[in-house]
Amino acid sequence: MENIIKPEQPLACFQVITDTHVTDRVDHIHNRHLEKALADITMYSSGSSGIMHVGDLTDRGLPEEYRQLHRILSIYQESLPEIRYTVGNHDIGDTLWQDPPLDLTTMTEDEVERVLEHSAATAKGEPGSTGESILPFTLWEKRLNQFAVATGMRGSYHDHWINGYHYIFLGTEQPHPKNCDMSAEQLEWLATKLSEDASPDRPIFVFLHQPLIDTVAGSMKEQGWYGVTQDAELKAILSHYPQVFLFSGHTHWQLEAKRTMYDGGDQMPTMFNAASVGYLWTDQDEPLEGSQGLHVDVYHDRVVVKGRDFVTGTWIENAEYVVQLPKIKKTVTNHLQSDDSL
Protein backbone atom coordinates (compact mmCIF):
# COMPACT_ATOMS: atom_id res chain seq x y z
CA MET A 1 0.00 0.00 0.00
CA GLU A 2 1.35 3.41 -0.93
CA ASN A 3 1.97 5.96 1.79
CA ILE A 4 -0.33 8.90 1.30
CA ILE A 5 1.24 12.19 2.34
CA LYS A 6 -1.39 14.38 3.90
CA PRO A 7 -1.14 18.11 3.24
CA GLU A 8 0.20 20.13 6.15
CA GLN A 9 -2.54 21.62 8.25
CA PRO A 10 -2.21 25.17 9.64
CA LEU A 11 -1.84 25.66 13.37
CA ALA A 12 -4.44 28.45 13.21
CA CYS A 13 -6.45 30.36 10.65
CA PHE A 14 -8.69 33.42 10.57
CA GLN A 15 -10.40 35.79 8.16
CA VAL A 16 -10.01 39.56 7.79
CA ILE A 17 -12.80 41.76 6.44
CA THR A 18 -13.24 45.51 6.54
CA ASP A 19 -15.33 48.47 5.39
CA THR A 20 -18.68 46.70 5.17
CA HIS A 21 -20.50 50.08 5.32
CA VAL A 22 -23.85 48.54 6.23
CA THR A 23 -26.72 50.96 5.58
CA ASP A 24 -30.31 51.22 6.83
CA ARG A 25 -31.61 49.98 3.45
CA VAL A 26 -32.12 46.23 3.49
CA ASP A 27 -31.45 45.81 -0.24
CA HIS A 28 -28.47 48.18 -0.50
CA ILE A 29 -25.52 46.65 -2.35
CA HIS A 30 -23.27 47.03 0.70
CA ASN A 31 -25.68 44.91 2.73
CA ARG A 32 -25.96 42.35 -0.05
CA HIS A 33 -22.19 42.23 -0.36
CA LEU A 34 -21.85 41.49 3.36
CA GLU A 35 -24.43 38.71 3.15
CA LYS A 36 -22.56 37.19 0.22
CA ALA A 37 -19.19 37.53 1.99
CA LEU A 38 -20.42 35.80 5.14
CA ALA A 39 -22.06 33.03 3.11
CA ASP A 40 -18.77 32.53 1.27
CA ILE A 41 -16.69 32.49 4.46
CA THR A 42 -18.83 29.69 5.89
CA MET A 43 -17.56 27.50 3.04
CA TYR A 44 -13.89 27.54 4.13
CA SER A 45 -13.73 28.81 7.73
CA SER A 46 -13.92 25.49 9.57
CA GLY A 47 -11.64 25.67 12.61
CA SER A 48 -11.22 29.43 12.27
CA SER A 49 -10.04 31.46 15.25
CA GLY A 50 -12.44 34.18 14.19
CA ILE A 51 -13.34 36.86 11.70
CA MET A 52 -11.42 40.06 12.37
CA HIS A 53 -13.31 43.15 11.18
CA VAL A 54 -11.07 46.18 10.58
CA GLY A 55 -13.67 48.93 10.91
CA ASP A 56 -16.37 50.95 9.16
CA LEU A 57 -18.96 48.35 10.05
CA THR A 58 -21.68 50.83 9.22
CA ASP A 59 -21.95 53.75 6.84
CA ARG A 60 -22.93 56.35 9.44
CA GLY A 61 -22.94 54.65 12.83
CA LEU A 62 -26.73 54.94 13.21
CA PRO A 63 -28.89 52.53 15.27
CA GLU A 64 -30.86 51.32 12.26
CA GLU A 65 -27.61 50.45 10.49
CA TYR A 66 -26.46 48.42 13.49
CA ARG A 67 -29.85 46.67 13.44
CA GLN A 68 -29.31 45.77 9.79
CA LEU A 69 -25.83 44.49 10.68
CA HIS A 70 -27.32 42.23 13.37
CA ARG A 71 -30.01 41.04 10.99
CA ILE A 72 -27.39 39.96 8.47
CA LEU A 73 -25.22 38.32 11.11
CA SER A 74 -28.19 36.40 12.49
CA ILE A 75 -28.62 34.63 9.15
CA TYR A 76 -25.23 32.94 9.53
CA GLN A 77 -24.71 32.91 13.30
CA GLU A 78 -24.85 29.10 13.51
CA SER A 79 -22.08 28.57 10.96
CA LEU A 80 -19.74 31.55 11.40
CA PRO A 81 -16.76 31.89 13.77
CA GLU A 82 -16.84 34.72 16.31
CA ILE A 83 -16.36 38.22 14.91
CA ARG A 84 -14.20 40.82 16.67
CA TYR A 85 -14.34 44.45 15.65
CA THR A 86 -12.10 47.48 15.11
CA VAL A 87 -13.54 51.00 15.22
CA GLY A 88 -13.66 52.93 11.94
CA ASN A 89 -14.16 56.62 11.27
CA HIS A 90 -17.63 56.00 9.79
CA ASP A 91 -18.64 54.18 12.98
CA ILE A 92 -17.60 56.79 15.55
CA GLY A 93 -16.42 59.89 13.68
CA ASP A 94 -17.82 63.38 14.12
CA THR A 95 -19.15 63.44 10.55
CA LEU A 96 -22.01 61.45 9.05
CA TRP A 97 -20.88 60.80 5.49
CA GLN A 98 -24.04 61.39 3.54
CA ASP A 99 -25.12 63.92 0.92
CA PRO A 100 -24.41 66.51 2.15
CA PRO A 101 -22.10 65.39 5.02
CA LEU A 102 -23.46 66.25 8.47
CA ASP A 103 -21.00 67.71 10.99
CA LEU A 104 -22.19 66.54 14.40
CA THR A 105 -19.96 69.00 16.26
CA THR A 106 -22.08 71.90 14.98
CA MET A 107 -25.24 70.45 16.56
CA THR A 108 -26.65 70.65 20.05
CA GLU A 109 -26.62 67.58 22.25
CA ASP A 110 -30.37 67.11 21.79
CA GLU A 111 -30.03 67.30 18.01
CA VAL A 112 -27.23 64.74 18.02
CA GLU A 113 -29.34 62.50 20.23
CA ARG A 114 -32.19 62.64 17.73
CA VAL A 115 -29.85 61.80 14.87
CA LEU A 116 -28.18 58.90 16.64
CA GLU A 117 -31.37 57.46 18.07
CA HIS A 118 -33.42 57.68 14.89
CA SER A 119 -31.70 58.61 11.63
CA ALA A 120 -30.27 61.63 9.88
CA ALA A 121 -33.47 61.88 7.86
CA THR A 122 -35.59 62.47 10.98
CA ALA A 123 -33.39 65.18 12.44
CA LYS A 124 -35.50 68.20 11.48
CA GLY A 125 -33.58 70.90 13.33
CA GLU A 126 -30.97 72.98 11.60
CA PRO A 127 -27.46 72.01 12.77
CA GLY A 128 -26.37 74.40 15.49
CA SER A 129 -29.68 76.24 15.38
CA THR A 130 -30.27 76.28 19.13
CA GLY A 131 -28.10 76.19 22.18
CA GLU A 132 -24.37 75.48 22.29
CA SER A 133 -22.55 73.05 20.04
CA ILE A 134 -22.01 69.60 21.50
CA LEU A 135 -18.71 69.06 23.31
CA PRO A 136 -16.37 66.68 21.44
CA PHE A 137 -16.00 64.52 24.57
CA THR A 138 -19.76 64.08 24.87
CA LEU A 139 -19.97 63.23 21.18
CA TRP A 140 -17.10 60.75 21.55
CA GLU A 141 -18.85 59.02 24.46
CA LYS A 142 -22.09 58.69 22.52
CA ARG A 143 -20.50 57.34 19.36
CA LEU A 144 -18.15 54.93 21.13
CA ASN A 145 -20.89 53.67 23.43
CA GLN A 146 -23.13 52.82 20.48
CA PHE A 147 -20.26 50.94 18.86
CA ALA A 148 -19.46 49.05 22.08
CA VAL A 149 -23.08 48.07 22.71
CA ALA A 150 -23.58 46.93 19.11
CA THR A 151 -20.38 44.87 18.91
CA GLY A 152 -19.68 43.74 22.46
CA MET A 153 -16.14 45.16 22.25
CA ARG A 154 -14.63 46.79 25.34
CA GLY A 155 -13.81 50.11 23.71
CA SER A 156 -11.66 51.54 20.97
CA TYR A 157 -8.75 49.23 21.84
CA HIS A 158 -8.71 45.69 23.19
CA ASP A 159 -6.79 42.42 22.87
CA HIS A 160 -7.49 38.69 22.82
CA TRP A 161 -5.39 35.53 23.13
CA ILE A 162 -6.93 32.93 20.80
CA ASN A 163 -5.51 29.42 20.37
CA GLY A 164 -2.07 30.57 21.49
CA TYR A 165 -1.82 33.70 19.34
CA HIS A 166 -2.18 37.34 20.32
CA TYR A 167 -4.73 39.55 18.51
CA ILE A 168 -4.57 43.28 19.27
CA PHE A 169 -7.13 45.86 18.11
CA LEU A 170 -6.31 49.58 18.03
CA GLY A 171 -8.51 52.59 17.35
CA THR A 172 -9.12 56.30 17.57
CA GLU A 173 -9.97 58.03 20.83
CA GLN A 174 -11.37 61.16 19.23
CA PRO A 175 -14.40 61.45 16.90
CA HIS A 176 -12.29 62.71 14.01
CA PRO A 177 -14.09 62.70 10.62
CA LYS A 178 -11.36 60.65 8.94
CA ASN A 179 -8.23 59.97 11.00
CA CYS A 180 -7.18 57.95 14.05
CA ASP A 181 -6.03 59.87 17.12
CA MET A 182 -4.47 57.63 19.81
CA SER A 183 -3.76 58.65 23.39
CA ALA A 184 -0.43 58.21 25.13
CA GLU A 185 -2.21 55.69 27.34
CA GLN A 186 -3.18 53.57 24.34
CA LEU A 187 0.35 53.64 22.95
CA GLU A 188 1.76 52.63 26.33
CA TRP A 189 -0.87 49.88 26.58
CA LEU A 190 0.16 48.64 23.13
CA ALA A 191 3.85 48.51 24.06
CA THR A 192 2.96 46.46 27.14
CA LYS A 193 0.66 44.10 25.24
CA LEU A 194 3.19 43.49 22.47
CA SER A 195 5.74 42.37 25.05
CA GLU A 196 3.42 39.79 26.63
CA ASP A 197 4.91 36.34 26.07
CA ALA A 198 6.44 37.63 22.83
CA SER A 199 8.67 35.39 20.71
CA PRO A 200 10.38 36.23 17.39
CA ASP A 201 9.03 33.08 15.78
CA ARG A 202 5.41 33.53 16.87
CA PRO A 203 3.39 36.13 14.94
CA ILE A 204 1.35 38.83 16.65
CA PHE A 205 -1.69 40.10 14.79
CA VAL A 206 -2.65 43.78 15.03
CA PHE A 207 -5.73 45.46 13.51
CA LEU A 208 -6.15 49.20 12.89
CA HIS A 209 -8.65 50.82 10.55
CA GLN A 210 -6.37 53.54 9.16
CA PRO A 211 -3.03 52.53 7.57
CA LEU A 212 0.29 54.12 8.40
CA ILE A 213 1.63 56.58 5.85
CA ASP A 214 3.58 55.24 2.84
CA THR A 215 2.95 51.58 3.60
CA VAL A 216 0.06 49.70 1.95
CA ALA A 217 -2.10 50.52 -1.07
CA GLY A 218 -3.87 53.87 -0.76
CA SER A 219 -1.62 55.12 2.05
CA MET A 220 0.95 56.88 -0.10
CA LYS A 221 1.28 60.54 0.80
CA GLU A 222 -0.10 61.67 -2.54
CA GLN A 223 -3.09 59.29 -2.24
CA GLY A 224 -4.14 60.73 1.11
CA TRP A 225 -5.75 57.69 2.75
CA TYR A 226 -3.22 57.23 5.54
CA GLY A 227 -4.52 58.63 8.78
CA VAL A 228 -2.85 58.03 12.16
CA THR A 229 -2.02 61.24 14.00
CA GLN A 230 0.66 59.44 16.03
CA ASP A 231 2.13 57.77 12.93
CA ALA A 232 5.78 58.18 13.99
CA GLU A 233 5.13 57.10 17.59
CA LEU A 234 3.23 54.01 16.51
CA LYS A 235 5.92 53.03 14.00
CA ALA A 236 8.56 53.41 16.73
CA ILE A 237 6.72 50.96 19.00
CA LEU A 238 6.04 48.46 16.22
CA SER A 239 9.67 48.56 15.05
CA HIS A 240 10.62 46.44 18.09
CA TYR A 241 8.35 43.63 16.91
CA PRO A 242 8.99 42.61 13.28
CA GLN A 243 6.89 39.47 13.95
CA VAL A 244 3.78 41.69 13.98
CA PHE A 245 1.30 41.45 11.11
CA LEU A 246 -0.70 44.68 10.85
CA PHE A 247 -4.00 44.61 8.93
CA SER A 248 -5.74 47.85 7.94
CA GLY A 249 -8.76 48.98 5.91
CA HIS A 250 -10.01 52.51 5.17
CA THR A 251 -8.56 52.81 1.65
CA HIS A 252 -10.82 50.21 -0.04
CA TRP A 253 -7.97 49.51 -2.48
CA GLN A 254 -8.59 46.29 -4.42
CA LEU A 255 -6.26 43.37 -3.70
CA GLU A 256 -5.06 43.30 -7.34
CA ALA A 257 -3.49 46.73 -6.85
CA LYS A 258 0.14 47.45 -6.03
CA ARG A 259 1.28 47.38 -2.41
CA THR A 260 -1.41 45.12 -0.98
CA MET A 261 1.46 43.93 1.23
CA TYR A 262 4.10 46.17 2.78
CA ASP A 263 7.32 44.28 3.51
CA GLY A 264 8.86 45.63 6.69
CA GLY A 265 11.80 43.23 6.56
CA ASP A 266 13.40 42.63 9.95
CA GLN A 267 12.92 46.27 10.97
CA MET A 268 9.15 46.71 10.84
CA PRO A 269 5.97 44.60 10.78
CA THR A 270 4.48 43.12 7.66
CA MET A 271 1.39 45.16 6.78
CA PHE A 272 -1.64 44.25 4.67
CA ASN A 273 -4.41 46.25 3.09
CA ALA A 274 -7.59 44.19 3.57
CA ALA A 275 -9.56 45.83 0.69
CA SER A 276 -13.32 46.25 1.40
CA VAL A 277 -16.52 44.24 1.51
CA GLY A 278 -18.75 47.20 0.61
CA TYR A 279 -17.01 48.54 -2.52
CA LEU A 280 -13.48 48.75 -3.93
CA TRP A 281 -11.02 51.40 -5.15
CA THR A 282 -8.33 51.23 -7.83
CA ASP A 283 -4.82 52.52 -8.49
CA GLN A 284 -6.46 54.80 -11.07
CA ASP A 285 -8.17 56.52 -8.12
CA GLU A 286 -11.61 55.34 -9.17
CA PRO A 287 -14.37 53.39 -7.39
CA LEU A 288 -15.00 49.79 -8.42
CA GLU A 289 -18.00 47.61 -7.65
CA GLY A 290 -16.78 44.51 -5.83
CA SER A 291 -16.22 42.82 -2.48
CA GLN A 292 -12.96 41.35 -1.18
CA GLY A 293 -11.18 40.22 1.98
CA LEU A 294 -8.32 38.08 3.31
CA HIS A 295 -7.85 34.57 4.66
CA VAL A 296 -4.83 33.88 6.90
CA ASP A 297 -3.23 30.50 7.63
CA VAL A 298 -0.57 30.23 10.35
CA TYR A 299 2.06 27.46 10.20
CA HIS A 300 5.04 26.80 12.46
CA ASP A 301 7.48 28.44 10.03
CA ARG A 302 5.33 30.81 7.95
CA VAL A 303 2.14 32.83 7.61
CA VAL A 304 0.15 32.57 4.37
CA VAL A 305 -2.27 35.37 3.42
CA LYS A 306 -4.68 34.86 0.53
CA GLY A 307 -7.07 37.30 -1.14
CA ARG A 308 -10.70 36.29 -1.62
CA ASP A 309 -13.28 37.64 -4.07
CA PHE A 310 -16.60 37.36 -2.25
CA VAL A 311 -18.72 38.10 -5.32
CA THR A 312 -17.34 35.19 -7.37
CA GLY A 313 -16.43 33.00 -4.39
CA THR A 314 -12.89 32.46 -5.67
CA TRP A 315 -9.30 33.07 -4.58
CA ILE A 316 -7.74 36.10 -6.25
CA GLU A 317 -4.97 35.29 -8.68
CA ASN A 318 -1.62 36.85 -7.76
CA ALA A 319 -2.88 37.77 -4.28
CA GLU A 320 -1.18 35.09 -2.19
CA TYR A 321 1.65 36.00 0.18
CA VAL A 322 3.99 33.71 2.12
CA VAL A 323 5.90 35.30 5.00
CA GLN A 324 8.62 33.12 6.52
CA LEU A 325 9.16 32.89 10.28
CA PRO A 326 11.23 33.98 12.11
CA LYS A 327 10.87 37.08 10.04
CA ILE A 328 14.35 37.29 8.59
CA LYS A 329 13.34 36.94 4.98
CA LYS A 330 10.06 36.90 3.07
CA THR A 331 8.84 35.19 -0.03
CA VAL A 332 5.94 36.71 -1.94
CA THR A 333 4.16 34.07 -4.00
CA ASN A 334 2.38 34.86 -7.28
CA HIS A 335 2.21 38.62 -6.81
CA LEU A 336 4.35 40.32 -9.40
CA GLN A 337 3.14 43.79 -8.44
CA SER A 338 4.28 43.68 -4.80
CA ASP A 339 6.57 46.46 -3.65
CA ASP A 340 9.49 45.45 -1.40
CA SER A 341 11.40 48.72 -1.67
CA LEU A 342 9.58 50.79 0.93
Rank of each mutant, 00 (worst) to 15 (best):
T151W: 03
L139T: 02
I51C: 08
N163V: 03
M107R: 13
I83W: 02
N145S: 11
R143Y: 05
Q98W: 07
T130L: 14
G128F: 06
T130W: 11
G47C: 08
P127Y: 06
H53G: 03
R154Q: 10
P101S: 04
G50M: 04
M43L: 15
P127E: 10
G155R: 03
K142M: 14
S48G: 05
W97S: 06
G164K: 05
G155L: 05
T95Q: 11
R60H: 13
L139E: 00
P63F: 13
D56E: 07
P63E: 14
G61Q: 02
G61C: 04
R84G: 02
G50E: 03
G152Q: 05
E78I: 02
Q77P: 00
V115L: 12
F147K: 01
W161N: 07
F137N: 10
I83L: 15
P127T: 09
H53D: 05
E109L: 15
S129Q: 15
S79M: 10
M52A: 03
S45K: 03
I75K: 14
P136Q: 03
L57R: 00
T138L: 15
H90C: 07
D94P: 01
I134H: 02
E117A: 11
D159R: 06
G152Y: 04
M153L: 03
E113H: 13
G164N: 08
D59G: 01
G93I: 00
T58V: 10
E109Q: 14
S119F: 05
F147I: 02
I134Y: 05
H118K: 13
W140D: 00
G93L: 06
E113F: 11
E64R: 14
V54S: 02
E141I: 08
P81Y: 04
Q98V: 09
L144F: 03
V149C: 05
T106M: 13
E126H: 08
E109Y: 11
E109D: 11
Q68H: 08
T122N: 12
Y76C: 06
G93W: 03
D99H: 08
L135K: 15
E82T: 10
G128N: 07
W140V: 00
D91W: 08
M43R: 15
Y44P: 02
V112C: 13
K124I: 14
L62S: 00
T151G: 04
T58L: 09
P81T: 03
T86M: 05
A121I: 11
V54C: 13
G125E: 13
I51G: 05
S49I: 09
L57M: 10
L102D: 00
H70G: 08
G50A: 07
F137A: 14
P136D: 05
F137Y: 13
P136C: 05
D91Q: 09
F147V: 01
M43F: 07
G131D: 10
P127S: 11
I72M: 07
E109M: 09
I134K: 06
G88T: 06
Q146I: 00
S129N: 09
I162E: 01
Q146D: 07
S156H: 09
Y44M: 07
Y165F: 15
D94H: 06
L116E: 01
S133A: 15
G55D: 04
S79E: 14
L144Y: 01
I72K: 01
L73P: 00
L104P: 00
E117T: 12
H118F: 11
A123Q: 12
S49P: 01
S156Y: 02
